Amino acid sequence: MTVLPRAPSRALGVFVSPGGRVLRPVAKGAAMKRLLFALVLALPMLAGCARPPTRLTIGVRNANDHVPFFLADDLGYYQSAGLQADVRIFPSNTELVEAARRGEVQLGAVPAPSAVAAIAHGAPLVIVAMTGRGSDALLVRADSGITDLAGLRGRRVGTIRGSILDLLLRQSLQAAGMDADRDVQIEYFSQLGDMLTALRSGQIDAASHTEPFLTQAEQEGWGRILLYYTHDWPDHPCCVVFARRDLVERQPELVEQVLRIHARAVDLAVADPLAAARAIGSRMKGFDLAVIQASLAPDKMRIDDHLEAREIERLAEAMYAQGLIERLPGRDEMLDLRFLERLGR
């Protein structure tokens, strides 16, 4: 007699196989709960895959010590971190600071005095890192006969008002026993190129200038570097990284992410000066690659992200003493160094 397989006993919630083995299926309710639980666990991963990249505008200048931003952009560091970063070059520090004040720029780099002055005047910015040191000096014509700072007495010296070049010029003259407003004739310019043209043509006798223009003038034979300002302030801060205060408060993890990328690019620029020179040369036209690479020499400047609070306070105090700012901001108003501390920088 043929034995037919038993029909499932739905009342008991069991099935019997043709071999007589009792099978206990999972109840529909329990199966559905497990499925829903798995979906909930998967949602963050699915959302991460579909999340659009974070948009960010980073403002910089055409300057040697802004090269970490150039490298990070060229090598896709921001993109690989899920950031859609627009690294935008501004023609002047004033325009960059104003764009940041309006919220068009969220992070960026400017000379330290520009950042301090902006904060002193109420801009919602805070300094979060360094990007370069040194690179500034006094340049004279090779045939000028000027051999030291004393030779500048009564001469016309060019600089940019309120800039790092202005501050360091005044400090070096003071260290030499001279007063910038009494012992020399200060001529203010708004563009570095115009100042260099004025020096070469004899309209001024010296220029407070920066790299790679200094090295180019010497290699072309018409200029001579009289004094690097590191002579009076070794390893002085040049350009700093700033962030809008609302970004720091609302998205501190994003600021830390950008600074992690910045640190990586700083390390690359230090380890590979040729790569750094190429990144600068692709943006600063009119300079030979060899000139740019020579201008990055350690005795002239240093790419760096580390920052000590006291050096910015010292800079702000000097600005206040020289009348470059009317109010002296406090440490917490100017600086937020917790991100560098977290990164071990």
Rank of each mutant, 00 (worst) to 15 (best):
G59C: 01
R6K: 14
T197W: 04
M334R: 05
V3C: 09
S201P: 06
A27K: 11
A318W: 08
Q106S: 14
L41Q: 12
V140Q: 03
L83P: 01
Q84C: 11
V126E: 04
V110E: 10
R327K: 06
L35V: 12
L39K: 10
L125I: 02
Q257S: 12
I58K: 03
A112S: 14
S172R: 14
L324F: 11
R141E: 05
E211M: 09
L168S: 15
G162M: 00
L169S: 01
E98S: 09
L165V: 09
V258R: 02
R10V: 13
G20I: 10
S144H: 07
A38Y: 12
F15M: 13
T147Q: 12
R331T: 13
G145F: 01
W233V: 02
S92H: 06
A198R: 06
D73M: 08
V258E: 00
I164L: 14
G330Y: 03
R244W: 03
W233K: 00
L307D: 00
G193E: 07
R250E: 10
R153G: 06
V22Q: 10
V40I: 15
G82I: 08
G281S: 09
G103A: 08
I164T: 15
I127C: 02
F213A: 12
V184W: 00
A198S: 11
R34N: 09
V16W: 04
A316K: 01
E326R: 07
G323Q: 10
F242P: 00
L169R: 00
D272V: 07
R314M: 11
S135R: 09
T147P: 01
A269W: 03
L71W: 07
L268A: 10
I225A: 03
A137L: 00
I303M: 05
L75V: 07
K33D: 08
D299E: 14
R61M: 14
F69M: 08
V258P: 01
S295R: 05
A263R: 15
L36F: 14
D179I: 07
Q219M: 13
D86R: 15
S282T: 14
A318Y: 05
R182H: 07
R156G: 03
E218M: 15
F69E: 03
R302D: 09
E104S: 10
L125N: 03
L247P: 01
D332E: 15
R314L: 15
P8E: 14
K285C: 05
P25K: 06
Y188S: 02
L268R: 15
L168H: 13
G134Y: 00
L39F: 12
G202V: 05
D179A: 12
G76S: 04
P68F: 04
L36K: 13
G223N: 07
L138P: 00
L167I: 10
L35P: 06
V22C: 09
T197V: 12
V116A: 03
